[in-house]
Design a protein around this nucleic acid. Sequence first.
DNA 1: AATGAATGAGTATTCATTCAT
DNA 2: TATGAATGAATACTCATTCAT
Lengths: 194, 194, 194, 194
Amino acid sequence: MQDRPDDKYSRILNASIQVISEKGLEKSSVSEIVKKAGIAQGTFYLYFSSKSDLVPAIANSLLTKILDRMKRKVHGGESFWSTLNVVINETFIVTEEHKDIIVLVYSGLAVNHSMEKWEEVYRPYYEWLEIEISKAVQKEEINSDINVKWTSRTIINLIENAAERYYIGGEQDESLTVYKEELFKFIRKSLIAG
Amino acid sequence: MQDRPDDKYSRILNASIQVISEKGLEKSSVSEIVKKAGIAQGTFYLYFSSKSDLVPAIANSLLTKILDRMKRKVHGGESFWSTLNVVINETFIVTEEHKDIIVLVYSGLAVNHSMEKWEEVYRPYYEWLEIEISKAVQKEEINSDINVKWTSRTIINLIENAAERYYIGGEQDESLTVYKEELFKFIRKSLIAG
Amino acid sequence: MQDRPDDKYSRILNASIQVISEKGLEKSSVSEIVKKAGIAQGTFYLYFSSKSDLVPAIANSLLTKILDRMKRKVHGGESFWSTLNVVINETFIVTEEHKDIIVLVYSGLAVNHSMEKWEEVYRPYYEWLEIEISKAVQKEEINSDINVKWTSRTIINLIENAAERYYIGGEQDESLTVYKEELFKFIRKSLIAG
Amino acid sequence: MQDRPDDKYSRILNASIQVISEKGLEKSSVSEIVKKAGIAQGTFYLYFSSKSDLVPAIANSLLTKILDRMKRKVHGGESFWSTLNVVINETFIVTEEHKDIIVLVYSGLAVNHSMEKWEEVYRPYYEWLEIEISKAVQKEEINSDINVKWTSRTIINLIENAAERYYIGGEQDESLTVYKEELFKFIRKSLIAG
DNA sequence: AATGAATGAGTATTCATTCAT
DNA sequence: TATGAATGAATACTCATTCAT
């Protein structure tokens, strides 16, 4: 992972996302990825130490994208409930766009027993929400009797799971709006002072 | 999958769980599984159509186990909150016991694009909780203003995720008791009438 | 091979011909053959000692069929040239009917290094034509200056090859009638006294 | 197939011919071939797409060899009968030398349903003889009342078959010289004007 | 004679990775 | 940096054959 991926790095990453979206990780070969990226076989290993090194890079890329979108929509003055809606909406949008690869991202790290990577990749996202929650506690929008860290992670997982179930699991009995409202209500009731 | 797995089927399944727990699915070989099961290579294919056919079978085995444990502890007279505690406790117990394979189960089905299997395997569990929730609604223990089906699935996912984060993600900043209480409170607040 | 194949033997043989015609020998499995024959796996080995034992049996079946057809059309009084036409016609008819398996028969025996079987299977056919040729020599229809045994085998091979080239090799530039006439002329010129 | 096979291609091809001559195609393993060729397993697949891809390559190699030998002995001034003798002699020589693999070549293409390859491989040989026959027709050495294309193919098949029967089928009742003379006479009588 | 569950040897092919250029 | 030819380890799966019933 590099902060400023040069051209080749990005080309590999994008080619990976395309190929892996189509065939899944196991059935994707490095040779197909480099072919799509337009580089030589050996060049791959100048940017990634192995094929499985792609997974955290993809995860990072996607989570960075999600977090950037959220930050761009949240400016600081609004209520926490507005922020929560942003989190829900953006998660659903990105999950829909990347549904073929997002399961890999959400779970693939775990499957490969690389928990440290998982933690590392998710940390900025978790921490950003922790801050938002803390501010909401201070503003007394939500109950002070909660564990901020635990709540941050639980909410993120809850929203991700709901989006997955909706787009990937095919749980589309209701309209998207109703589905997201149900989710919003569920979380809100848990958090509000009462 | 068979309701009454005969001896060979069970031996393969148990051997698979052992081997896959140790090495993960990809690094587990059929030859190692059959060696541990004490059967011939070809016999494997009389009971499973392929190596990946093991995943839903293991998932089914684990979920059946969890559900059986829950049903044994829930008798019908108790409050929903008591039932919810059983669900939380049993999920945490089985997750701890099978933590090396449970991520595979929760995510492997999705990764292999076998959503139908996922739905099929989870259905009895989802439906059982739906009934419990419906009863609680009738008893006015929980808010009638909820979508029972959606709530059932969300609660199960929420609890599974929390247990995973605790045992697999290493999110053990607090005592298990406190952690589970946090979870119970979070769900309870979402459900109670108010 | 049995002179009076009982019911099961015939069912296996016919199933083999069907399956092998479709997929070729190597890709045909005993399990598929027995399935089509409607018998148990083990029963196959009561009638054939191995899978490759099928090839000479099929060859024998086909050559017996060809020879029977020829004998039925040749009664003894006609000229050798009439007999030659029968041989050509019947070879072409059976080659067309069994084109998917006949290459296997003509060459498969040789490929499996089982020359003795080949000789054994072809012998009745070769010998029948030797007798016809000898009679033609005596009737001074054909040149006495030939090696009867060699000629018999050469003619049979020549006709078989021409039929193969026509139906299997796709050498169908001309009409079938013209093609067979070319063949007839070629052989006749070689044989006639002059 | 390449016109200028590089070193590795040739080494694989020669190793294949040796191994397959000994054990036949089915019982020859790629691992044995690469071992004999002194290259890595994977390298095989850089030059041949599969094991069965060897068959047309071997066929091409052998037919090229036969045709080269013939062309070297035929200079253009001689009579067609001299050329025919060259064709017979060289076919017998190469058949003897490669008797363990030549049946595979003559029949393997056909067995594998790869008629196009067969046609492609044989074409230069067929065409060369067509030209020789045409010249003989012009010189009035042979009957003008023949189909040149058909005759070319028939003669080649006839000679190949005779050589096979002699060396592989064990049809060695007479001396080689007498056997070849019988063959020469048979063809000559068919062709000469009369 | 017939069965069919069980066997286990056998192998083509893939592909991540390396390294000489 | 970049290449891509070469490597060779690694394995799921097939299927002819057996044998207890």
